[in-house]
């Protein structure tokens, strides 16, 4: 199991990369992260059966995201707690959910199920970005547009 971005998501971000002359994403992980966080903020994801099937872009969490990976996982957990309507005092259910998303034996510390969920949030997040209009031609314009979409999510 690995991190996946659908072809349409890649196309959206590739268009920005192709045209921007004033800055760029440093990696595919940047694109994946931006897409996933929109989905998480909106508590909106694909059902796991509709997880993108495109080839994984990477198996691991890259260096740029090592320090904050647990923040991303925690955001994922809170989104799932909300989506599943788990009461805040349900210790067993929250613990069970956390352990289904995290995996101490995986190098990423995220379980296959956790990666699958994140992929589903990223897919939905990119669709929200795409629905907000065509991909900007400059990177700084994307950052501004992204912020707007994220706030509205």
């Amino acid at each position: 199991m690995a991190f996946r971005l659908s072809d349409t998501a890649r196309e959206y971000f590739d268009n920005i990369e192709d045209t921007s002359s004033t800055g760029d994403f440093d990696s595919k992980w940047d694109q994946y992260y931006f897409a996933a966080m929109v989905g998480i903020k909106a508590r909106d994801r694909e059902v796991t059966d509709d997880e993108p099937t495109a080839d994984p872009f990477v198996e691991t969490v890259i260096e740029d995201y090592q320090d904050q990976k647990f923040e991303i996982y925690a955001a994922l957990i809170t989104a799932e707690i909300d989506r599943q309507n788990i009461p805040q005092d349900a210790e067993d259910e929250i613990r069970e959910l956390m352990l289904s998303i995290l995996d101490s034996s995986d190098p990423t510390q995220l379980s296959d199920y956790g990666k699958q969920l994140l992929n589903c949030y990223a897919e939905r997040g990119h669709k929200r970005l795409r629905d907000a209009g065509p991909a900007p031609t400059e990177f700084d314009e994307f950052l501004r547009k992204y912020h707007k979409v994220l706030q509205q999510a």
């Binding site: 800055g23 940047d30 992260y33 931006f34 740029d64 923040e71 991303i72 950052l143």
Partner: peptide
């Protein structure tokens, strides 16, 4: 800005 935005918090 990208550096900051990479951190969810």
């Amino acid at each position: 800005l990208l550096d900051d935005m990479r951190v969810p918090s």
